[in-house]
Simulated scan of single mutants.
Amino acid sequence: MLTFSNKLAQLKYFSILFLILLFNSCSSKKVTNSTQIKTSENNQPLNIIFMVGDGMGLSQVSSSYFSKKTEPNFSRFKSIGLIKTSSGSHLITDSAAGATAFSAGEKSYNGAIGVNMDTVPIKNIVEILSDKDYATGLIATSSITHATPGSFFAHVKSRGLAEEIATALPTSEVDFFAGGGKKYFFNRKDNKSLYEDFIQNNFTIDTLNLKKNKTLLKNEKYGFLLADDAMPWAGDRNDFLANATELALSYLNKNEAKGDNGFFLMIEGSQIDWGGHSNNSDYIISEVLDFDKVIGNVLDFAEADGNTLVIVTADHETGGYTLAADPDKKNTIKGSFSTKGHSATLIPVFAYGKGEEHFTGIYENTAIFEKILELVENKK
């Protein structure tokens, strides 16, 4: 029979043992967490898909949760941050300065296309990654010469110089592009046609249609110019954005002509911005849902590939868009606006895949460029 003193001694023994086990358990968890963090930091992306919902602030994103019958693809992201979007000249940026911050990593003046505050060209991410044998692509629902896509291949002092921006595309490092803008290449005010410039630089140009299952040769470059200026709005585009993205991913992911270093693809949902400028909530929602569909397709690709970083963000918010109760309809949300221009609100950044943890927090829009290049430079 155990005496009280023996029981006390035994209790002390088990208490001490428990504390030792607890300490070891905590120590193990600390080591494990440290190892996980280190491993995560060494997970560097091979492919980078950068998606810009032009004019897409948090309310625009939120609209998809009230208008889509299924859960929006935004919910699939776990790493989310915020960017500050002021330009080098204004507290409220325009799309050109916003895109230049993304493409070249510098704050510039409103209207700048790939140039700094002194109008000096800045090397952009397409040029930098092409030097590293990355395949590159651009897709937009606007003209391909518009502010956002233009900032990824041209260096022009003003976004309004669409024909000058266009002249940079045939000799650029871009391997694949799709969007509108035929008149800036073939029906120009200076009466020039850039068709021969494209052919001389190994481009095959299609102005008729884009089929997602089209066979593209890996040692050639491709351009799809499918509208005179901008592409039609989402309801009339026949899944252009989704089909162009699928074709681009198939082509860029196997582009042997550029080696095996991976690819960079910029996809812009351009017309979310235009819905904001026109204070048209239905226009915004249709464009956001179209963009969200493509986000889903891109995330499916990244999940299956296992070696891709996806970043979804916007250059700025447009319209001062707000989701409020509709006074005329019980339990209904109604979109309202505070401006027909841009606003200064912080913009969400959604990241998925290798290196996604680097995109959380609050930071300047130029940091996205810096973070991408840091991941590429440190790639194992």
Rank of each mutant, 00 (worst) to 15 (best):
G180N: 04
A154G: 10
N124C: 08
A178N: 02
L138W: 02
G180R: 01
Q200W: 10
T148L: 02
L161R: 04
D206W: 00
I125Q: 07
N124F: 09
K183T: 09
I128R: 06
F153D: 03
D118Y: 11
F186W: 05
D206G: 03
L208M: 10
E163M: 04
S151F: 14
I165G: 00
N124D: 10
T207M: 10
S143R: 15
K157H: 15
L138G: 01
G137K: 05
T171N: 13
T141M: 13
T119L: 11
K192L: 08
H146Y: 10
L129K: 14
E196S: 12
S158R: 14
G180T: 00
A135Q: 04
K182F: 00
I205Y: 05
L208K: 09
G179Q: 02
I139D: 08
K157T: 13
H155Y: 10
A168H: 09
F153W: 08
S143H: 11
D190Q: 08
I165N: 01
T145F: 04
E163T: 00
L169Y: 00
V120A: 12
D197S: 14
D206H: 05
R188S: 06
T207Q: 11
I144G: 05
G150F: 12
D118S: 12
F186Y: 10
S143V: 10
V156Q: 07
I125D: 05
G179M: 00
F198G: 03
A140S: 15
T119S: 13
G181Q: 01
M117E: 08
R188A: 05
F198I: 02
S130E: 11
K189S: 15
V120C: 12
